[in-house]
Design a binder for these strands. Structure first.
Lengths: 351, 351
DNA sequence: CTGTTAGCGCGTTCAT
DNA sequence: ATGAACGCGCTAACAG
């Protein structure tokens, strides 16, 4: 006696004395058979424990899986706990849900073979952030075969979704510089060519502009510096590799623990997470914000707006970024480059 | 001329003058052919743009997809922005990654047919939180066919992962009651039978204990009250449906805006998100914590520990919960009920 | 409106 | 060590 298999469409058809096509139609094309027969088939199916067409077989046959993969540059573990990435996923999920698709999470940090293997099941891809190795992109399905949307980085020949990083950073820096700082400084995110959680030496090599959006953010800062007669090269910079409290804290501590006459009194940070770490560690040290130290962030995450002091930052709508990417990948809107506007939020950390 | 298809294993075999089985073996069973031939096949494959076996066909044939589905009770949009759910997913992703599996996100809030359809592709399921309708569970593959692990709720006959909600809440309440409050109160999360973002009337029907873990948390609070000669029935309770700042804020505002002689001086909250909302709104109103108002949370999320005042709370290791659930579903550890320990964190919000 | 048929791309016997 | 043949479960043509 054979081990009891899952009931198949064919089993059901045989049981009911109809053809497999009719059963298939009962599930997929209601207009192809009489409502009465359809109802009969559906109720018998339930009774016999048939749950509907098998997704694996169906996707092999149709070529579509109703699965969209989001490929994240960072590890899933990190991305899921990052407010900005989570919001992006949120927006993606919202649109996919509404259109009967589901979300497969992949990471550029996975074993190459793994990403490659699982990816061939997806109907389309949203790639978020530049992969550590460009290789991954070659591993993905051939361009033109299945839709791919790049978010927050440029990918040759593919539609992209960006925010206006450079003008936004120009604007926030200009706001901050209205009150002339004595010692301004910048805390960057993933800006250096080689991993670095420390101060950036003046001769240190940076990532090219097409490899990281933070390069554009820095350009915005620099333009504002120059307009305020501050030589950008004279502004000390630090770098942080991962946008988490744990990684930020030591670098921030190093900055705040500088002697009074060296400690910056204005810190332009490339993310709210960095800025929040500054706020937390400054509080612990009895430094007053904004009196002793002014801080700006980037992103506009909820955590920075619901606590005191409220962060001065650039709000980017990551949820909307996700929605747009999802709609593009589903073909619901034209697959053309999009640039989203940001909004300057003036909080208490740099009034 | 046919539209250019994706290269298939068969194409490649024909091109190289070997059989399809040999190509398949080159990818899946290195020991079944000479290293030299294997290398030849692999390099030719790359050259001809063959990316390896198609996931759809492979999963149909083998019956396995290397995809594990996490089914979330709440919407994906909500879950992805909830620190606790994100941490769980983080832990799940970590283990799946390490074992060459990927993560498919489903929500119990999706259209039934959708969940059902996509779900048949997964090799196993992690179900987090009780579905709005129990129906979903019937929709999932027959028990015994594919592994299913329930997290934070009980599912008949299925392995579960829980934390010790009741003793944890007993412990934190006992700690709080060491300093006798004049007007203690509780802010619950999804406790009432019918949705309610307001004070709970004394005759209001609650969800049964097997439908929500917050029932166990409340039982812990009540036990501590009773031991401190406080009649649990005399303690006012509020309820909140969704663990977000936006939903919490109006309810918390209602509480904090009570006249001085009615306003609670101790708030036991069922989540850190609720407690943080209390802290934020209290600050805005000039209420001092802990002098005027003591607050406790639950979860131990990072946000509550990195800001001042540090939250007094129960830390649960959601990441580990996710890891365990993932290991169970992959068969890496016995599928038996697990109860994780929590840790009392005494912060500044209720010293 | 319903049934027949031919694969979707692959993995796996069982031969050789 | 290698190849031929079968079928995983389903859907899209087409035929009736």
């Amino acid at each position: 006696m054979p081990t009891s298999r899952r009931t198949t469409l064919k089993d059901l058809a045989r049981e009911l004395g109809v053809s497999t096509a009719t059963v298939s139609n009962a599930f997929n094309r209601p207009d192809q058979l009489s409502p009465k027969l359809r109802e009969h088939i559906l109720s018998e199916a339930r009774r016999l424990g048939y749950r509907g067409p098998d997704a694996k077989a169906r996707s092999l046959r149709t070529g579509r899986s109703r699965i969209i993969a989001v490929v994240l540059a960072e590890s899933l573990t990190y991305s899921l706990n990052d407010a900005v990435a989570s919001e992006l996923l949120s927006g993606v999920a919202e649109v996919l849900d509404a259109h009967g698709h589901t979300l497969l999470l992949l990471s550029g940090r996975q074993h190459e073979a793994q990403v490659n293997g699982s990816s061939s099941i997806a109907d389309g891809f949203i790639v978020y952030g530049l992969m550590p190795s460009l290789m991954l992109l070659e591993e993905l399905p051939l361009p033109g075969q299945r839709p791919l949307v790049a978010v927050d980085f440029d990918l040759e020949g593919q539609p992209t979704v960006h925010v206006d990083d450079e003008p936004a950073c120009y604007a926030i820096a200009r706001h901050a510089l209205k009150t002339p700082p004595r010692r301004p400084a910048v805390i960057n995110l993933r800006l250096t060519k080689h991993p670095c959680n420390a101060r950036i030496a003046s001769d240190q090599e940076l990532l090219p502009a097409d490899r990281t959006i933070t390069r554009a953010r820095l350009a915005g800062f620099h333009q504002a510096f120059a307009e305020h007669a501050i030589d950008p090269a004279s502004v000390p910079m630090w770098n942080i590799e991962e946008n988490t409290h744990e990684v930020c804290a030591p670098v921030v501590a190093e900055i705040l623990d500088l002697p009074d006459e060296e400690r910056p009194d204005l810190l332009l940070c490339m993310s709210d997470r960095i800025a929040l770490t500054v706020v937390t560690l400054a509080e612990q040290r009895g430094l007053r914000i904004p009196e002793d130290l002014r801080v700006t962030g980037f992103d506009g995450i909820a955590e920075g707006q619901y606590r005191a002091p409220r962060l001065t930052t650039v709000r980017q709508d990551s949820v909307e970024k996700g929605r747009i990417a999802a709609r593009m990948v589903l073909g619901l809107e034209p697959a053309e480059p999009r640039l989203l506007r940001t909004e300057l939020l003036i909080g208490d950390s740099c009034p």
